[in-house]
């Protein structure tokens, strides 16, 4: 039956869906809907973060000792640039969060972005597995609602006619 697919995850107590009434099922479904939206949103945010870290990593790759002294255009605003030159090709500043910046050498920076990308990917995987579990439960609940609804309709028919 439908309850089979709601394999209990650790820390989650198993509820027999067939014992719940329609209202409870609807409530549960609504809560699951909300949770799934949260997962979708986080996944989206993580994807953006993943992209940003990848991009930053690629930028660091472009800084080599050869680029020393080369002229670049520094963006002051989104649409205004001033010429500048790279004076230090060995060190970069990295925003490590909460307003802190750390100076790292190129190798360290590459390593940092690699680690961050790996971390974000890991989180994404976690959310994906959690999300698919939730959608399984969601499906089971939808099926249950359907079944209960039909049972109710059939039970109500003889009275109505």
């Amino acid at each position: 039956m439908a309850t089979v697919s709601t394999a209990p995850a650790p820390g989650m107590h198993q509820i027999d869906l067939s014992k719940l009434n329609l209202q409870q099922l609807a409530q549960l479904k609504q809560r699951l809907d909300q949770e799934m939206t949260v997962f979708q949103d986080s996944l989206h945010t993580l994807k953006i973060a993943h992209g940003k870290f990848m991009e930053s990593g690629e930028c660091v790759e472009k800084i080599t000792p050869d680029t020393k002294g080369k002229t670049i255009l520094v963006p002051l605003t989104g649409s205004m640039y001033v010429p500048g030159s790279i004076s230090d090709t060995d060190n970069v500043m990295i925003d490590i969060g909460t307003g802190y910046y750390a100076q790292k050498d190129i190798e360290g920076a590459k390593d940092y972005f690699k680690r961050k990308v790996a971390f974000v990917s890991e989180q994404m995987e976690k959310i994906k597995t959690l999300g698919s579990e939730k959608s399984k439960v969601h499906k089971a609940i939808c099926m249950m609602i359907e079944m209960k609804f039909q049972a109710q309709m059939q039970a109500g028919k003889p009275n109505a006619s």
Binding site: M93, D95, G99, Y100, Y101, Q103
Partner: peptide, 11 residues
């Protein structure tokens, strides 16, 4: 970070 690494705070 290494002990002698430079750290800045954005204020």
């Amino acid at each position: 970070l290494k002990k002698d690494a430079e750290v800045y705070k954005l204020i």
